[in-house]
Amino acid sequence: MQLVLQIVANGLLIGGLYALLAVGLTLIFGVLRVVNFAHAEFMMLGMYGAYWLWAIFGLDPYVSVFLITPVIFLLGVAVDRVIIQRSIGKPDVTVVFATLGLSILLQNAALTLWQADIRSVSTFASGSVFVVGGVRLSVAMSVSFAAAMLFALGLWFFLTRTMYGKAIQAVAQNRRAAALMGIDVKRVYLFTYSVAVAAAGAMGVLVAPIFTIFPRVGQTHIVTIFVIVVLGGLGSVPGAVVAALLVGIIRAGAGFLLGTAWGELSYFAVFLLVLVVRPQGFFGRRGAEVYGG
């Protein structure tokens, strides 16, 4: 029983991290109709930001997160202006491969600048755990989990309760009608993209004390994030959170029972099955998968 609790707790914590990435990715898809293949690269940049500020100035990631997140937000603004806005409404090949190209570029720019060396940040949070009811929880994981849940909750509140949030939802549902209603669609795109990638960057900073840092670290996670986003229903924020926690638990459980590889295989198989049988995911609107553009 203790073991089961421990596995579930580990899974939940990992799932929380995925949630922070998945919420942004699903928001970008829902609003811009763009699959942001470069999403996890912003997390990677956040990790490197945390590493360098720690290595050079001795800044704790829990401090530097407040410096790095705005920088990544600005980077998101630039990327949106230069790449994303130009690809919206274009053929599928442009929409898919522009961000894929960006992902390759960012990964290898990091590889060129900082080499393939595996780096790590060690702070007070790195190794420390606390025990609740016999279950050991990593401090750093718990902090990032809390941040993820706060962000998701805040986003949900923002989208449903504020005027600007409702404007974003209007754009997600019908960009043409939203434009006719006087909503500045381009600004909504800019804002959505930048906030989403800034969240990915923030997550990178928060997990820096516990995860190793290397140029391709984003790639090891992005496919899992896609799985989550599709399971939750592309475009659905609550769906992404629930699916992220579920995948976290399944991954931890299946990994324990079947070994990492077959555990991974199992959720890819589920992913394919869901795409085929219920492509709108568990929370998505029916028709999104057919509507595509």
Binding site: K90, V93, L100, G101, L102, S103, I104, N108
Partner: peptide, 13 residues
């Protein structure tokens, strides 16, 4: 690979 990524972006855009 940086060049590959850049090339891919420029071509599709």
């Amino acid at each position: 690979l940086v060049v590959y990524g850049f090339l891919l972006m420029v071509i599709v855009l």
